[in-house]
Design a protein around this nucleic acid. Structure first.
Lengths: 174, 174
DNA sequence: GCCATCTCTAGTCGATTAGTAGAGTATCAG
DNA sequence: CTGATACTCTACTAATCGACTAGAGATGGC
């Protein structure tokens, strides 16, 4: 019943991107993400590319480039992300809704194991297909604030870039 | 979120043993099990040995030997069987109750992914740790009878052995 | 044009999965 | 007591997968 590292890293990165956007830092570089989550940078890069091809993130190259969510966090279902990277949620293929495959048991309709696993798969899918990135981000932020933990990606180091983008934003929304 | 073939075969074999016992055929040979479930015989043998070492089945060697459940089906929790063969139920180690291990995320208490996966793991465990072999066997048998499907392992071929054991049984219970 | 950043392709290395093979040992019928 | 039958134990393997690593290439801002 394992989640692969691939999926784990993908979700952690997406959550970070969601948090960052919430804090008005829509773009993060792969290096920042890797540092914050302690992930191997090149591996994470691959994963982000996969997320890009699937339309979850978009990228900007060159200086001040990076990765950003490509759509509203509320429209990113975590189940779909896991399916993209790890394949079906179902423990065995004969109970998968999205990638059904017959198993070797002689009579599927009366297979006790199948009934049980169908139950498990529905339970997993109910959670993961309902959960959106926005929900996770919101809960995470709320918990961090409640516990007075420093929130990541907040712009505490005011370098030139930060000042510039802050100014740009203010004038834009004004 | 995969169940390994190992676990799948183990559960199918246990269910068969449970059904067989219910039909007064407490002992099945590995060949019968493999034939009914279409499994590679030597692989299944290995798995059954593992189940024996863990106390789920017991064996009789020699002619008329085979495998039988070593305890009441009601006391066999399917979650425990899967844990034995596949390891923890949890999708990631940092939410496992039986085999917790810290993950690399910087702050476990405020990790959104962890909260989500904890939910998933509890959901899986709730099903698999409650489900007993007896329940599965009962449901399976009921379904097969309701649909008038021929029940496996019923003694329809009356060979000498069957007659003998039937007689023995009658005299014993009389 | 320079540098930071993403992009693409390939390779690596160990672990795991799903088996096979075969000699050994216990049991029971006859 | 002997032979057939069935489990037991150890070893091996081939393929796949998971989790990276490496490095040259493309792109964009300044």
């Amino acid at each position: 019943m394992n989640l692969s590292k691939r999926s784990e890293y993908a979700l952690r990165a997406l959550i970070d991107l969601g948090i960052a956007r919430e804090l008005d830092r829509p773009i993060l570089q792969v290096g920042e993400l890797a540092a914050k989550e302690q992930l191997p940078i090149k591996f994470l890069e691959q994963i982000l590319t996969q997320l890009r091809l699937a339309g979850y993130v978009e990228t900007k190259r060159g200086k001040l480039g990076g990765y950003a969510l490509a759509k509203p966090a509320a429209r990113i279902k975590l189940g779909a992300v896991i399916r993209l990277l790890d394949g079906p949620l179902a423990p065995i293929a004969c109970v998968s809704q999205t990638a059904y495959r017959r198993c070797t048991c002689p009579d599927e309709a009366h297979c006790g194991l199948r009934m049980l696993m169908l139950d498990v798969r529905n339970s997993i899918a109910r959670i993961l297909d309902r959960a959106t990135l926005a929900q996770i981000v919101e809960i995470t932020l709320r918990k961090m604030r409640r516990d007075k933990v420093p929130v990541p990606f907040a712009r505490h180091s005011f370098g030139l870039n930060d000042l510039l983008s802050a100014t740009r934003k203010k004038t834009a929304t004004a």
